[in-house]
């Protein structure tokens, strides 16, 4: 028991930040899939996204941290909340009472987790050379250079993808004559 307390006492602020943010992210993820009310799920998911953004800031990926908050916690989650309120799902879901499905899913998930961890456990950067390490990797200047030089064609194709997605969403959401409506 005492040795665990010693380990906890020896943690540096960076390690505290890492473990705290990881626990927050996992707590939010568990709350997302376990809560009965879909609105609570969305709020838990936003908690996860914010703690992941904090992870990105710690890893010196500031641009992606900002984009993560804007795109995920902002745009995508607003869409989710909008649809949930639009559909007006009053009844609470009861599917979490099915114990067999819960147990089988947990066993399958932990099996897959074991396989993934055992195959990835050798993942380690061999050594870090302070001479060649570039701490400005995640800044907008470096990423912009790479994005507009090496990945110019995919970047343009993404805009086409967005156009198609927008057209598809409008087409799917349109009411047609003869269709059963509200």
């Amino acid at each position: 028991m005492n040795q665990y307390i010693e380990v906890v006492k020896a943690l540096t602020p960076t390690q505290w930040a890492f473990y705290g943010l990881s626990v927050m992210a996992l707590f939010g993820a568990l709350g997302t899939i376990m809560s009965k009310n879909p609105i609570h799920s969305v709020i838990y998911l936003i908690l996860t996204f914010f703690s992941l953004s904090a992870h990105y800031v710690m890893l010196n990926a500031q641009f992606l941290a900002a984009v993560n908050i804007i795109v995920y916690a902002g745009a995508i989650m607003v869409l989710f909340i909008f649809v949930i309120m639009f559909l007006n799902l009053r009844e609470e879901s009861t599917e979490l009472n099915r114990n067999t499905v819960l147990i089988v899913a947990t066993v399958l998930g932990s099996l897959l987790g074991l396989i993934l961890i055992s195959s990835l456990k050798k993942a380690e950067v061999q050594y870090l050379n302070p001479e060649s390490f570039r701490s400005q990797t995640g800044m907008i200047e470096t990423l912009g250079n790479v994005l507009y030089q090496d990945y110019l064609l995919p970047f343009e194709l993404v805009s086409v993808l967005f156009l198609i997605a927008m057209a598809g969403a409008v087409m799917l959401g349109k009411r047609e004559k003869g269709e059963r409506n509200f």
Binding site: L26, S41, V101, L102, A105, G109, G113
Partner: peptide, 20 residues
């Protein structure tokens, strides 16, 4: 990342609400 991914997979398996 592995734990987050596993939680996502378990969520897809146990929930029937399409939004979740």
């Amino acid at each position: 990342a592995t734990m987050l991914f596993i939680i996502g997979i378990v969520g897809v398996l146990i929930r029937r609400n399409a939004i979740i």
